[in-house]
Each structure stands twice: as C-alpha cells, then as structure tokens.
Computed example of a mutant assay.
Amino acid sequence: QPGTMSLQGAVRRSFVALRDQRAAWRSVLEECDPLMESLGNLGEQMNALSRVRVSDTPLRAFPDLQERLQFQLLQAVDLLLQRLRDRMSCLQSIRDSVGGHVSAALQLYQDSADGLDVAVATQRSSVAPSLADMLEWLQDAERFYRRQFLQRKTLLLTLRRDDRAQLEGAAKAWRSLDSPDAEQQITGEVITHLSHEPMAGRYYIKSASPICEMD
C-alpha cells in the first residue's frame, strides 16, 4: 500500500535522525561532566576558605584578602554556571528536534490511519519490527529525552552560587540522572539496525548536521 510505504519511510527517517541526535546528546553531556566536577572543586575551595581566619595568619597584612578571594571564587562559579546553561540550550535544541521528528511521524500516521491495514501495520518478522513497534519506540524516545532534559534543567536551576555543600555535590547529583539502561533500551540496537538497513531511493537519508555547536 502506498500509504503504508510512505509512513514506513517517514518512520525510518525519524530513526536515522534520532540516531544522530543521540550522538549529539551524548557529546553535550560529556562536555557537562568536567564543568560539574569543576563546580565541586570550587565548592571545596569556598569551604576551605570559610574555615581560614586570615587575621591569624601572616596574610593579615593584606586587607580584604579573604573577601577578594571569595569574590573570585564566586565569579568562577558564575562562569561555570553560564557555560552549563549554554549546554542546556543545546540539549533543549536536541530534545525539540527529537520531538519534531516524532510528531511528524505520528501526524503522518494519523493522516493515513483510515486507509491503513491494521494487519500490515502490526506485522513483524524475525529481522524487521512492525510499523506499530517503530511508532511506539519513537514515542518512548521522545519521552526519554523530554524527561531527561527536564530533570537536568531542574537540577541546574536549583544550584546556588553561594551554597558550598550543593556545589560540592553537583557532579554526583548530575551523574545520578544518567539512565544508560533506559537509553540503550529505546535508542540502542533498534536505531542501529533501522538506520543502517538498506533503503530504496526516496527513503535514503543522510546524517543530519549537528544541531548545536559548542565553544
């Protein structure tokens, strides 16, 4: 059926795009990890500074030294938080791109629903999933990235520049949001299989360009 073939092509193109966005997502998260570690280091330095009484050391000859050091540390925290916000903008773009591809595939499915043979849509084989399976996987992927983005954005918004304990635990809290098993389940082998499967003529698609460039 022409409608079924068109829908299958759209779904497969969505999986190719999803594969590319998964790689971009991982790349951004890898850039965030050292930034979070640096936040923790600054939190430790701020903690150590708070325990020092400069007036009891030879450095008492330098007026306002402790305040100036604290100010420099806070400036460094602000810089890191801004860089993390920039990365969150990239993650948001990736999330939106995934959502756009999934919405387009679902819209095409709804437009084709009346003329779609249910038996054909649910037919699967040992080497190929059914159209219904693929649509469900796409929706799972969209929910995964939407939830991941919301959790990471919420964590970043709760970080306060002057909360030393919070800064020290930032990297651990960030890593706790990782869901490698869930990601593999919805975007791993299935995407690899579908995106490398030979496609005839009009179904072929090149890898998407990077959606966000980092400094």
Score class of each variant (00 low, 15 high):
111 D>W: 14
121 A>E: 08
129 P>K: 10
11 V>E: 03
94 I>V: 14
21 Q>C: 05
140 D>F: 09
141 A>Y: 02
124 R>K: 11
36 M>S: 08
129 P>L: 10
182 A>M: 06
141 A>M: 14
68 R>G: 01
191 I>Y: 13
200 A>V: 15
18 L>M: 06
70 Q>P: 00
80 L>Q: 13
16 V>T: 13
147 R>H: 08
178 D>Q: 14
202 R>G: 09
60 R>C: 04
146 R>F: 10
47 N>H: 09
20 D>W: 04
102 V>G: 01
101 H>W: 07
63 P>K: 09
126 S>R: 15
5 M>D: 15
56 D>P: 03
69 L>I: 02
196 H>W: 11
58 P>M: 05
96 D>L: 09
211 I>W: 00
129 P>I: 09
133 D>G: 13
23 A>V: 12
91 L>F: 06
35 L>C: 03
16 V>C: 00
129 P>N: 14
61 A>I: 05
97 S>D: 07
10 A>L: 07
112 S>Y: 08
209 S>D: 10
136 E>I: 03
175 R>M: 10
43 G>C: 07
191 I>T: 14
171 A>V: 11
200 A>F: 09
182 A>N: 07
173 A>T: 01
114 D>I: 02
74 L>P: 00
60 R>D: 01
98 V>T: 11
93 S>I: 08
139 Q>I: 06
71 F>W: 07
201 G>M: 11
192 T>F: 12
86 D>H: 06
103 S>M: 15
141 A>W: 06
56 D>Y: 04
136 E>N: 13
99 G>W: 00
61 A>L: 12
62 F>S: 03
162 D>H: 05
207 S>T: 09
108 L>K: 13
204 Y>T: 10
97 S>W: 00
89 S>P: 01
101 H>Y: 05
201 G>T: 07
115 G>S: 06
83 R>H: 12
18 L>D: 03
212 C>E: 02
189 E>F: 10
199 M>E: 14
193 H>S: 14
52 V>Q: 11
148 Q>K: 10
17 A>M: 00
175 R>G: 06
203 Y>P: 03
208 A>H: 08
117 D>Q: 11
34 P>N: 12
67 E>W: 01
150 L>H: 12
120 V>Y: 09
213 E>G: 08
166 Q>V: 05
169 G>P: 00
156 L>Y: 09
133 D>P: 07
41 N>T: 03
56 D>E: 15
185 Q>P: 01
